[in-house]
Design a protein around this nucleic acid. Structure first.
Length: 612
RNA sequence: GCUCACAUAGCUCAGUCGGUAGAGCGCUUCCUUGGUAAGGAAGAGGUCAUCGGUUCAAAUCCGAUUGUGAGCACCA
């Protein structure tokens, strides 16, 4: 059972919402009693509980949790009643002054000024008062004493802005019953076990070496097999969809990135330039700067520009598994999910405006096909737009309001025409245009953009790309950027967690392991391995010196999908005994039949073994 | 980048009050030739992340650095 991701707070049970919200007040009361003089930030209910932010007088660690929980239970037991109070603006502000709650006061001011409120509500339970909209339970006796648990302490910026002071956030789980809490904690612990960082190490998929550098994973043999299989899949799908493959270098002159506009917008996210000094014939020294590319598009644009293009050539679809480098901030780097060097299932489609929708539809079909094969279902689509209200919009987005409106309209229309569900992400656009992001949940409960389809109205113009239209005039093409299989890094991270490391046969690093009952059947085992390998099945023989039990254990721990056990019986009849990962029953079948089945399983990229 | 925590053998971890290092797995060798999730024995393997400080004495206390984790911010 995967760790469940729950929906919006709006869809949550109202009673549970009250419990979580009220518990946040109880937590605050308890924290203020162990850390006198601390002040309050926000303390809302969240997906699986609640949190509260504090500016603490003295630091808190999770060693303080038992004492805080004890005090919380005491408060629950004492049956404090929640009283609602509505104060006029000035009264409310002076109350917050008296309470010495500067953060609350700041927010109160904003509520009054920006939202035009002339009164604010407060809730009091016992000695604790908090400015808050409610709703709450009637008394703290309505809150179960054994259905919450403090989870972790972390830093969080006041109002989510890194220019502000960092507060201390305490996270807690909270449910209606102890059973639900226990279940949730257990699911959470189970989810930790499938973390790609843990399984990636155990299964020999990747490693990160400090001498190579942070965020620069090394792909081990097992991981490289998975990459190669994904790449093969992508290349087949793209071939069928009319893409052409190209290959381009991973660096380019700095000036190119000024031309594309990456540099003003994107400098902080790029590795700094490599300055070259060269000796010319007449002894002069010239300087050139090269940069590692953060995206493949400029290179592909230059391929588009390499020859004259006619409207008859469009759409042109250039595909490459391209390596890019992005200087992610140290705190963002994590396992394979956020890296500084990555290899992307990239392609750029150059088309006219009236081809945008049909190209997007074809891309969505390609996504569907890829996800169907991989068995991925738990994703949602996000239509990522610019944020015209953002004060920093000029630094974040290409300044062309008309083009933004137009391209965002095209995508919105398209999504509505296709009748797919999506959420809107205001301020999530690329600097050069809106996009549709495919969001997947990680085991730790966060959503990550795995794949993306982007509509770029800006860079082709900057690079003066054009095609000759039917009118004989030059026209600027639109460019669609898309990466259905994401980067290898992020896709493999996600797949490890999705399959809990037990990959379907077609993706598995070792597809078949042959276990002999004793060394005297070594020759038969080796024959099987040789025969399978000659058909490109990734088969291997288990180490000889172990017992059968041990070999089965090792093969199972390695999550190998197909174990073949062979001894006297099998050798005699030219059969194999198949033990599938996660399946108790074994089947003995003729070697030839196994061979046919496994080849079919692999060729269809089946998620299961096709027995015949 | 920010807040907090953590860093001991290839891996997972123990190490009390400061007195110079332990287990299991894995690895190597030997014995065992075994039919369904760990057969037995022996051995090798550590500059306790790095640098500095306190101390007669530091894995242990203090500081800095590097790295990792959770969260925040960021995320083309």
């Amino acid at each position: 059972m995967p760790y469940e991701h729950q929906g919006d707070l709006a869809t949550e049970d109202e009673a549970l919402y009250r419990i979580r919200h009220s518990l946040a007040h109880v937590l605050a009361q308890a924290v203020l009693s162990v850390r006198e003089g601390s002040t309050l930030g926000f303390g809302p209910p969240i997906r699986d509980g609640f949190y509260y932010d504090f500016a603490l007088s003295e630091p808190i660690t999770d060693e303080d949790f038992p004492e805080i929980e004890r005090r919380m239970r005491k408060i629950l037991k004492s049956g404090q009643r929640f009283y609602r109070e509505e104060l006029a603006r000035d009264e409310a502000l002076s109350r917050l002054d008296e309470m010495r709650e500067p953060y609350k006061r700041e927010y109160a001011m904003e509520l009054c000024e920006k939202n035009g409120l002339d009164s604010l509500t407060f809730y009091r339970n016992g000695p604790f008062v908090d400015m808050c909209e409610g709703p709450h339970v009637d008394t703290t006796k309505d809150i179960p004493r054994d259905a919450f648990k403090l989870r972790s302490v972390a830093g969080a910026y006041w109002r989510g802005d890194s220019d502000n002071q960092m507060l201390t956030r305490i996270y807690a789980w909270a449910f209606s019953t102890k059973d639900e809490l226990d279940q949730h904690v257990k699911a959470f612990e189970e989810a930790q076990k499938r973390d790609h960082k843990k399984l990636g190490k155990e299964l020999g998929i990747f490693t990160i070496d400090n001498d190579i550098g942070r965020g620069l994973p090394l792909w081990l043999p097992n991981g490289t097999v998975i990459r190669d299989e994904l790449e093969k899949l992508a290349k087949e799908l793209e071939f069928k969809a009319g893409y052409q493959r190209v290959a381009t270098p991973q660096i380019a002159k700095q000036d190119l990135f000024f031309q594309t506009g990456h540099l003003p917008y994107y400098a902080d996210d790029m590795y700094p330039p490599m300055e070259l000094t060269e000796q010319t014939q007449d002894g002069e020294v010239t300087r050139e700067a090269y940069m590692l590319r953060p995206m493949n598009c400029p290179h592909h644009h230059k391929i588009f520009a390499a020859q004259p293009r006619s409207y008859r050539d469009l759409p042109i679809r250039l595909a490459e598994y391209g390596h890019v480098y992005r200087f992610e901030e140290s705190g963002a780097v994590s396992g394979l999910l956020r890296v500084r060097g990555m290899c992307m299932n990239d392609a750029h489609i150059y088309c006219s405006e009236d081809q945008i929708k049909s190209e997007f539809r074809a891309i969505m079909q390609l996504y569907d096909e890829a996800y169907r094969i991989l068995g991925l279902e738990s994703y949602f689509l996000r239509l990522s737009k610019s944020d015209p209200e953002d004060p920093k919009r000029k630094e974040k987005y290409v300044d062309n309001p008309e083009a933004w409106l137009r391209s965002e309209d095209i995508l919105t229309e398209l999504m509505d025409e296709m009748g797919v569900d999506y959420v809107e992400g205001i301020g999530e656009a690329a600097f050069y245009g809106p996009k549709i992001d495919v969001q997947f949940p990680t085991v730790t409960g966060r959503d990550e953009s795995v794949s993306t389809i982007q509509l770029d109205f800006a860079i082709p113009e900057r690079l003066k790309l054009f095609y000759i239209g039917s009118d004989g005039q030059e026209h600027i093409p639109y460019c669609i950027h898309r990466a259905p299989l994401s980067t290898h890094e992020r896709m493999v991270a996600y797949l490890i967690e999705h399959f809990a490391g037990a990959f379907p046969t077609w993706l598995a690093p070792v597809q078949v392991q042959v276990l002999t009952v004793s060394e005297q059947f070594h020759e038969y085992g080796q024959q099987i391995v040789d025969r399978l390998r000659s058909r490109f099945v990734r088969a291997e023989l288990a180490p000889e010196s172990d017992t059968v039990s041990k070999k089965i254990r090792q093969g199972t721990v390695a999550k190998i999908p197909n174990l073949l056990i062979v001894g006297a019986r099998e050798e005699e009849d030219n059969t194999v005994t198949l033990r599938r990962y996660g399946v108790r029953e074994q089947v003995t079948m003729p070697l030839g039949k196994f061979e046919d089945s496994i080849l079919q399983t692999i060729n269809c990229r089946s998620l299961d073994f096709l027995a015949g």
